[in-house]
Structure formats: structure tokens, C-alpha cells
């Protein structure tokens, strides 16, 4: 990876960070209808993951915490922001909202309100890719908490049994809402579980850009070439509350973790980038994110018209 390869990723990761901050600010201003689960801390990993994927041949499904993934797969930021704001021009005209982002056109099949609900769907994308011989793969992204859902265990087994080109991705931030993975997850790591099912599995540190890129590339290539499932576990910090506004009284201040984006910047500096260059990239990304979210916030809320159209389509009682 050369410096020139890394800079666009740095820019994208900062775009996502700034996008989330803009959403948080609008949430505080009362402009965001629902509770938002920000991806602060996972941006680097998500950018590295999606750099190895190409929609719509590859299809990613994600959890409730998927703003960053949708953006990293290339969904239009104004449309993503408008969806989170429940406005016209949103991915689904505001019908779905923050936890239900769907941009299959660019390879982000769906995010999900149900923990683990997205995982079998990615197996479906993998089955389509396999059957239709598109060369694509399915990617199921979830948190560590989701690994305790039956549907996730079943899908791990199914993917092995049916030999599906499916990459499982665990973003392990050590927490599910207020509960620690240490308490909730039966002692063994997601990787060890995956290996128990016969999946190839690796671990990456969410602050190590070169490690993330290398490992994701290796696993994605393996899934693509062999048509068999694999799993990657990324250790990422949760730099925010479970949702924006969560006071996190259950968490002590002492558990603060390093910020992957600062680690990314250190990597760039060590590779020869100047502080000014980094600064310029960041300010550009921040300005672009602000412009996108501001544009979305200028849109009207026409979700009443959108739902009225469905009311006549779904065949309920007149």
C-alpha cells in the first residue's frame, strides 16, 4: 500500500466521522426523528473492508449501526442523510430511517433493526451470487452481541454446509448496549466459534489500516476464489454511547480507548505524509460531510405521502 492508496481511505474515514458528528448535532437540534447509533471508532475498518468489495455484485448487510457501512459502500451521502432525517430524497423517502438503510444498487443490501436479522440475508446474497455465477460475494456485518443470536449460529453452519461465498464480519467493540461481551459471550472469541463451524477466520485491529486492508483482502479473495465462507473479527472501540444521547452511566470513564483515526494519521505521517496534508484532507472531508448533511436537512418531510402509496398497495382492509 502506497501513501497515495491510503490517502483516499483516510479521507473517506474522516468523511464518515464528520458525517456522524453532523447527524449527532442535528439530533441534538431535534431534527432527527429516531435514535441514532453512530459508528464512531469503526470508520477505519469499514473503509478498509469496503475497499475490497464492489457493489452491486458484492452485497453487504449490516446492523443497526450502519451509517458508515452504507457510505463506505458508496451510497449517496445526501440520500443516506435524508433517510436518517426522514426526508424526501432519502434512500427510501424516509420510510425506513436510521436503522433501515437499503442501497442494494451500490452493494449495501440492508441494515437492520433486529440484532442478527441481517445475517441470513447476506447468505441469500451469497446464494444468488453463487447460483447466478456473478462472481460476487455476500458480506454479513454484525456486532459482537449479535454472535449470540441463533440465526447467526445457524447461518454460520448453513454457509459451511452449502458452501456459500459469504464473509462474516464481526465488529467487536466489547459491548452490546450496556452489557460486556466478556459477560455475555461464553468465554470464547467469535473467531474460535467460527473455526468450530469450519470457517476460515482471522482477527484484525481496528486501528491498523495496513493490517485491516491486508487481512480483508486475503479473506475476500479466498471467499471469492473458493466460494467458501470465512470470518473476520475486527477489534474496534465504541467511541460513543450505544445511541447518541446514551449517558453511559454503566461505563466508567477509564475505559477510553485509542481512536483508530488518530492511529491512521500516525501511519500516514510515518509513511511520509505531512501534517499539513493530513489537515487538508480532514478539512476537505469535514466540509463535504457538512455540505451533504446540510443539503439533506433542507429537504421536506414527505413520508406521509410515501406511506400513503404503500397503504393502497399492500392489500389491507379498505
Amino acid at each position: 500500500m502506497t501513501l497515495d492508496d491510503l490517502k483516499p481511505l483516510f479521507e473517506k474515514a474522516h468523511f464518515i466521522r464528520a458525517f456522524e458528528h453532523e447527524i449527532a448535532a442535528l439530533s441534538e437540534a431535534g431534527d432527527v426523528p429516531g435514535l441514532v447509533h453512530l459508528c464512531l471508532g469503526a470508520e477505519l475498518f469499514e473503509v478498509a473492508l469496503c475497499a475490497n468489495l464492489e457493489g452491486p455484485g458484492d452485497q453487504v448487510t449490516g446492523s443497526h449501526r450502519s451509517h458508515g457501512l452504507a457510505l463506505a459502500m458508496g451510497a449517496d451521502p445526501v440520500a443516506v442523510a435524508a433517510e436518517i432525517l426522514g426526508r424526501t430524497g432519502g434512500l427510501s423517502e424516509g420510510l425506513g430511517g436510521t436503522q433501515h438503510l437499503l442501497a442494494p444498487e451500490v452493494g449495501f443490501l440492508t441494515s437492520n433493526g433486529i440484532v442478527g436479522g441481517q445475517v441470513p440475508l447476506a447468505a441469500g446474497a451469497a446464494l444468488s451470487a453463487k447460483t447466478l455465477k456473478t462472481g460476487g460475494i455476500g458480506v454479513a456485518v454484525m456486532g459482537d452481541g449479535a454472535t449470540n443470536q441463533g440465526a447467526v449460529f445457524e447461518t454460520m453452519n448453513l454457509a459451511v454446509a452449502l458452501k456459500l461465498p459469504l464473509l462474516f464480519v464481526i465488529e467487536n467493540n466489547g459491548l452490546g448496549q450496556s452489557t460486556s461481551a466478556h459477560y455475555a459471550s461464553g468465554g470464547i472469541s467469535p473467531m474460535a466459534r467460527a473455526r468450530g463451524f469450519g470457517l476460515a477466520a482471522s482477527h484484525v485491529e481496528g486501528g491498523d489500516i495496513t493490517g485491516c486492508l491486508k487481512t480483508v483482502d486475503r479473506l475476500v479473495s479466498w471467499v471469492r476464489e473458493t466460494g467458501s465462507p470465512a470470518l473476520v473479527e475486527a477489534s474496534v472501540p465504541r467511541l460513543s454511547g450505544h445511541y447518541h444521547g446514551d449517558e453511559q452511566l454503566y461505563r466508567s470513564a477509564a475505559d477510553s480507548q485509542p481512536d483508530p483515526l488518530e492511529q491512521f494519521e500516525d501511519t500516514l505521517l510515518r509513511a511520509g505524509a505531512t501534517a499539513t496534508e493530513c489537515h487538508t484532507i480532514k478539512t476537505g472531508a469535514h466540509a463535504a460531510a457538512k455540505a451533504a448533511v446540510t443539503a439533506a436537512n433542507q429537504q421536506a418531510d414527505t413520508s406521509d405521502e410515501a406511506v400513503a402509496r404503500w397503504a393502497t398497495r399492500l392489500g389491507g382492509a379498505a
Binding site: 426523528p33 426522514g86 413520508s303 404503500w310 397503504a311 399492500l314 389491507g316
Partner: peptide, 14 residues
């Protein structure tokens, strides 16, 4: 109406 519950404020209110 016979639809899933919409997210946007106007839609949910309606």
C-alpha cells in the same frame, strides 16, 4: 393502514 410503521415524522403521524 395496512403497512409497516414508517420512520419519518409526517409518515408516522399520518
Amino acid at each position: 393502514p395496512h403497512t409497516p410503521i414508517p420512520y419519518g415524522r409526517a409518515g408516522e403521524h399520518a
